[in-house]
Computed example of a mutant assay.
Amino acid sequence: MGASSSSSVQAARKAIADRLHGLRLDAGLTAHRLSETCGWHPAKTSRIEHAKAAPSDADIRAWCRACGADDQVADLIAASRDADSMYIEWKRLQRGGLRQLQESRVPLYERTRLFRTYSSHVMPGLLQTPEYATALMAAITDFRGTPNDVAEAVEARMARSDVIRQGRARFAMLIEESVLRYQIGSPEVMAGQLGALLSAMALPAVSLGIVPFSARSRAQWVTEAFTMFDDSRVHVELLAAQVTVTAPGEVDLYVRAHARLMDMAVRGEHARRLVAAALSALAG
């Protein structure tokens, strides 16, 4: 799954490279001649055409001007910027602090009608208690060295999480059993979070599955955390960056992965027993 999460980005960049290559051929220019006209080394033209280097806005303008295709500039620049936005390093997303990141996603959360999530290491943001979110965001802030606005970010996350109780959307949520056991914050924080998870399982809009340690064929499904927004967009969380997947074929891959993982998960009373066992382990 890790390789597929960036393939949409590469496919988008390859499509831009192919369009630029086509413009050069249509203009009857050799790669050497185009490079000469644009004022750069032929190796740069080769890297751009083979999607080994992303062209800048200035590169695209120069390329189109050399090919007599100025009418293509705006469209190509827009496509290039879209490709860049698919892979965004966390340091860029979080450079203004965590609160701004939480608030920026409110419109997306409000218009989504079906959320499908998979969490392998921490509780899904929509289910986090304020205390759990505080402990988690404090650790993120410390690790990434971002501005410390944890209190404001937690407040924003709690406000965003209201969508789970408004009755306008459905939530098909999956977590690994290990999420119940990884201690974020103090034992009291974890106990409160596990109790809140039991309450969330009773919400009519929420379907929560837990993939148990004992799930068969589990080894081949170790994957990154992701959130699906309807059938049109997936946010994949990597250590260094967030990858946005929008290509239909790639989105479908995550739809099928979520369904497969849901088949491995336990729900209802069995899931509640796993949560209760994790609570008992904290008390012990």
Results as ranks from 00 to 15, higher is better:
H21T: 15
L23C: 09
G28S: 14
G28A: 10
T30V: 01
T30N: 04
A31Q: 12
H32S: 15
R33G: 06
R33N: 09
T37D: 06
T37V: 14
G39Y: 00
H41S: 11
H41P: 06
P42Y: 03
P42L: 02
K44C: 05
S46D: 09
E49P: 04
K52C: 10
A53D: 10
A54F: 05
A54K: 12
D57M: 00
D57A: 09
I60A: 02
C64I: 11
C64Y: 08
A66H: 05
D70R: 07
A74W: 00
D75F: 10
A79S: 13
S80N: 15
D82V: 08
A83N: 02
A83W: 00
I88G: 08
K91F: 09
R92M: 10
L93R: 11
L93C: 09
R95Q: 09
R95I: 07
R105H: 07
R105V: 08
P107H: 07
L108Q: 10
Y109C: 13
E110V: 15
E110H: 15
R111H: 11
T112D: 00
R113N: 14
R116C: 02
Y118Q: 07
H121I: 09
H121R: 12
L126G: 00
L127N: 08
Q128N: 12
T129D: 01
T129K: 02
T129Q: 06
E131M: 06
T134D: 03
T134H: 03
M137L: 15
A139N: 04
A139F: 06
D142F: 03
D142C: 09
R144I: 07
R144V: 07
